[in-house]
């Protein structure tokens, strides 16, 4: 709190109350005093800053002369074409007003929409980035996408392989979050019911933040995940332990010493089915399923772990 005040004290803009608040902070510990003293020395040392720096006048003179002759040439040329320029500017003005009129009348900010309904959709964007859209997901592109910046709006889940372009950051708006990247690949999933947003970074570096909150950006590198929890309005980060966050795209489900209740959750999500168990971590599964039918996967689990699986009204229950 009082660290903010330091700047006001240094620049002599603190109110008497703030000054008193600051004094209290200052006297609270020698660490605080020490810190402030250093800050003060730095601040004061800049008083006559850089007065000993040397600059070369001789070369400067030549450069200035060059500049003067360059502008003179420009002025003469301009005079000659002045009339032409007037005519052109009228045309440009007309063109501009048409453009502005057009823009105002367009209304919506997003002009291109991709949606995947029953199967995964792969999209190549204008900038060369690739996006795989999971089922029941939509991706909207801002108009003028990739001209000024690259902003997209995601509902549902998608995997992004963003083409590197340092001048135009790639931004994904999803739920109440913003994911900013320069060039990288990551998976982003929004939950329309809870409003939670899950981010898994596959390669490169990603910034993750809440919309309208410039503060508290999280920087994630490969192997990291972030989850925005809507009910608590906070972001949780950690190492990604989930082997299957890309299963929807690759068709491959992997389990490595995974407790059976976790297996059920992942199978439910992947197959869009209800698979339940009360065994918790009472059984553990290791194995890989490649584009396998649900029935086959369940049969394999049943046999290899010695469990029983019942189906009732479309709900699968795994028990001993």
């Amino acid at each position: 709190m009082s660290r903010k005040l330091i700047e006001k004290i240094l620049s002599d803009s603190a109110s008497p109350e703030e000054r008193q608040q600051f004094e209290e902070w200052l006297n609270a510990s020698s660490k605080n005093r020490n810190y402030f003293n250093k800050a003060r020395v730095i601040w004061d040392s800049l008083e006559g800053a850089f007065q000993t720096k040397k600059f070369e006048k001789q070369t400067a003179q030549t450069k200035i002369e060059l500049r003067i002759s360059a502008t003179n040439a420009k002025v003469t040329r301009l005079k000659r074409y002045r009339q032409l320029a007037y005519a052109a500017s009228v045309l440009i003005l007309l063109g501009l007003s048409f453009l502005i009129w057009n823009k105002v009348n367009q209304g919506n900010r997003f002009d291109k929409v991709y949606s995947a309904n029953n199967s995964v959709l792969e999209v190549e964007l204008e900038d060369g980035s690739h996006v795989w859209l999971n089922k029941n997901s939509t991706l909207e592109l801002t108009e003028n996408f990739s001209q000024k910046d690259r902003t997209v709006n995601l509902k549902g889940e998608a995997y992004f392989e963003v083409k590197s372009d340092e001048t135009k950051p790639f931004k994904v708006l999803a739920g109440k979050t913003v994911t900013k990247v320069l060039g990288t690949s990551f998976n982003l999933e929004t939950d329309s019911i809870t409003g939670n947003v899950n981010l898994n970074v596959n390669s490169g570096k990603v910034a993750f933040l809440r919309k309208n909150r410039k503060k508290n950006e999280y920087y994630l590198t490969n192997g990291a995940y972030a989850r925005y929890i809507e009910s608590e309005n906070r972001i949780q980060v950690g190492r990604n332990e989930n082997l299957n966050y890309l299963a929807w795209k690759t068709g491959r489900l992997r389990f490595y010493d995974t407790p059976i209740d976790q297996v059920c959750k992942e199978l439910s999500k992947y197959y869009g089915a209800r698979i339940e168990t009360e065994l918790g971590d009472g059984a553990i599964l290791t194995g890989t399923f490649d584009n396998e039918e649900l029935e086959n996967v369940l049969a394999i689990i049943e046999i290899s772990l010695g469990l029983e699986i019942h189906q009732d009204n479309g709900v699968y229950t795994i028990s001993r």
């Binding site: 800049l46 800053a49 850089f50 007065q51 720096k53 040397k54 600059f55 006048k57 400067a60 450069k63 200035i64 500049r67 003067i68 502008t71």
Partner: peptide, 26 residues
């Protein structure tokens, strides 16, 4: 030179400071 030093405080670069001051002189 004083103008370059003055400008340097803002831009923290010799080249840019000189560039700005030369431009002003032109």
């Amino acid at each position: 030179e004083p103008l370059c030093r003055f400008c340097y405080r803002y831009v923290l670069s010799n080249e840019i400071a000189e560039d700005i001051v030369q431009d002003t002189f032109a």
